[in-house]
Simulated assay, not measured.
Amino acid sequence: MAALNYHHLRYFWVIATESNLTRAAERLHVSQSALSIQLRKLEESLGQALFERDGKRLVLTEAGRIALDYANAIFRTGDELFSLMHNRPVGAQQVLRIGAVATLSRNFQLQMLKPLLGQAQIELVLRSGSLRDLLAQMHTHTLDLVLSNRPVPRDAEINWHSHLLDEQPVSLIGKPSPDAEPFQFPEDLRWASLLLPSVESEIRAAFDFILEQAGIRPRVLAEVDDMAMLRLLCRESGNLALVPPVVVQDELESGMLVERCRIPGLKERFYAITPSRRFPNALVRELLLGSKKEEVTP
């Protein structure tokens, strides 16, 4: 069995860091041709291509991303040895990279990630953005998992998997009022002023459909694509907000806000999106086993 050449691995690590063979060669003070030979030897020993070309850039393949993770861990272990000898011990960690769409409840994310928090051997990398941007990052192997409030269709190029994690009711939330009458849905919405998720939201589309069927057009004060901001506006404005109660669970528990009306038949669903990979991150499987309800094919 061939032994790993750590000299080749160091060269690979520099190339991956620079994403460019010329710059890596200059940094290592070797010729570009010599560096290419060393990289090819490493790929041959591993039996996997580690890079693919994108114009003048070198982009890591899935195997390359795995190799880079191990290279980082190997060189970090070397740093740990040095630190240990100088009475500065540090611990090795596994890395889990998670993206979450900006519209997703922060409280739900916290509940999802709570089993991993406080584990010294796990490093979490959390990123937020649009679903399209996060899927693009996962396609290039810079994310292991994307949390979303809608499933992703499979296509011919990428076999996405949408794992249903949970579903929550959706309610109209507002400040408490001792004189408030019981809310009559949907009739009372004829006079209400609302804070709503943006039109891109699935719960907003379903809510609009319900009101259209009832012939009601409420006054919309704000459309917000960030649940954290919707939560703050609800707290500060005194107007009703359409949100899953999990978004404002702290305020509901403290009495700062109250649930005025639960919308019949309306739910928000939470998904973990993963790609098909030959080398899946073991932490993803561990996380899904504790949370997943089912896999969904849109």
Rank of each mutant, 00 (worst) to 15 (best):
S162M: 08
H163T: 09
S148I: 09
L134A: 06
E123Q: 14
E202G: 00
D144E: 12
N281I: 05
G91Q: 13
L60N: 01
L96Y: 04
T61H: 01
F270S: 02
L287E: 10
A16M: 08
L283E: 06
R53M: 05
A24P: 02
G55T: 11
L289W: 05
A67L: 12
L195F: 09
E259C: 06
L28P: 02
A34H: 07
R150T: 11
A214H: 14
A228R: 15
K292T: 06
L131K: 02
E236S: 14
L50G: 02
L257A: 06
E80A: 10
A71M: 03
N87M: 03
R219Y: 13
E253R: 15
E294A: 15
A3F: 04
G238W: 08
A3E: 15
V224G: 00
E236C: 09
F209R: 15
V101F: 08
E18C: 04
T142K: 13
Q119Y: 07
F75T: 04
S162I: 05
L96H: 03
P264Y: 15
T142M: 05
L50K: 10
E18L: 05
A25L: 03
Y271G: 02
R285A: 14
F12V: 11
E259A: 06
P245I: 11
T22P: 01
L96C: 02
R10A: 13
L21H: 07
V90P: 00
R154L: 09
D226K: 13
P218N: 15
S130E: 00
L172I: 14
G55D: 08
Q93T: 03
A25V: 07
L124I: 12
D208S: 14
L172F: 11
P245G: 07
G47S: 11
E167N: 08
G78Y: 05
I216A: 09
F75P: 00
L84F: 01
F209N: 13
P178R: 12
L46G: 11
S19L: 02
S36V: 04
I74K: 01
F270G: 01
G64P: 01
R235V: 15
L287A: 13
A100I: 12
